[in-house]
């Protein structure tokens, strides 16, 4: 995944930032999806937005509002608030698409996922 390209020194910082955010409120969107992210945009870590997808086996209880365990986590890293909100908005929009959570359960490849997301937003 693209997150691997990050500097190793940033990993611990990012992990702590993401955990800090989770302590404030869970980032589970429902439908088995969570979007962990740091509290603040991190231009010091990423120059451009990054989206890392993690398929969890077994699914994890993430204190989601629909109480469903989370099987897919989108780690969102953004250099700015605007980009962050845009990314979150797109993921949330995709989740409203019937069958998207089932598509995720099939653990699509990076290209399949990208193509699917593009198709959803093209239809929008």
């Amino acid at each position: 995944m693209r997150a691997r390209a990050l500097a190793p020194a940033a990993h611990a910082t990012l992990l702590e930032a993401v955990l800090e955010r989770e302590r404030l409120a869970a980032t589970a969107l429902g439908h088995g999806v969570a979007i962990p992210h740091p509290r603040q945009p991190r231009p010091d870590v990423v120059e451009a937005a990054r989206l890392s997808v993690v398929f969890l086996d077994p699914p994890v209880d993430w204190a989601a509002i629909d109480r469903l365990p989370v099987h897919t986590a989108f780690l969102v890293l953004s250099p700015s608030t605007a980009v962050h909100l845009q990314l979150l908005s797109r993921i949330a929009y995709a989740l409203r698409e019937p069958g998207f959570d089932e598509f995720l359960l099939e653990r699509p490849s990076k290209s399949e996922l990208a193509q699917h997301l593009r198709a959803i937003h093209k239809d929008a």
């Binding site: 404030l24 409120a25 589970a28 969107l29 603040q40 509002i65 962050h84 909100l85 979150l88 949330a92």
Partner: peptide
């Protein structure tokens, strides 16, 4: 307004972000 009216985003977004 756009973020505030998004039913999913309001669950996962903090005031500090907007």
């Amino acid at each position: 307004r756009e973020v505030l009216l998004d039913p999913e985003l309001v669950h996962v977004t903090l005031v500090g972000m907007i």
